[in-house]
Amino acid sequence: MAQEQKQIYGILAEFESAAALLHAAARIRDAGYKEFDCHSPFPIHGMDEAMGLKRSPLGWIVGLMAFGGLFLAYLLQGWTSTIDYPLIIAGKPFFSYQAYVPVGFGIAVLFGALSAFFGMLVLNKLPQPWHPVFYSNNFEKMSTDGFFISIEKKDEKFTVDHTTTFLASIGGQNIELLQGDRVE
């Protein structure tokens, strides 16, 4: 089965600064590329716009989950204290909704935070140890001071020659093909 061949996954180009990366991203967006990404050691202000990305939907997910948590917490507290195990404590009503606030809030925050954490991972498709950019040895700089743009082969406009010259024309350096051994 193990049939080995060099497989091309995309092209990686390095840029010299955050500003250069931002300008290049806007040029690539205008050129009509879709499957590209700008790698930087820290988030760059204005990059979402330069790349033409929409706002992350995470806020809606977290908001819904937090309210869901609040609802479930009230359901749990109300049902256990009034129906399943009613106990008279200090003459307070069984459904003491005021006293349920701290636990309701705690669970709402817990649900919200868990969905922020796992939602971020899911939206980013993490953990994902394998990715074409890791075929580049130069890419190790990314997490220190490297600014890179990768254009993936699955993009409709992708051709090795054109994309390479285009990346060079907008200031890309150390342009390399992302290729690796494909084992099937």
Partner: peptide, 19 residues
């Protein structure tokens, strides 16, 4: 977790951090 610092990741990451 396979972090590669792409802005497509930073976008969700920054919002998650803010949230």
């Amino acid at each position: 977790l396979g972090w590669r610092g792409g802005n497509r990741q930073w976008k969700h990451y920054e919002l998650a951090y803010l949230l």
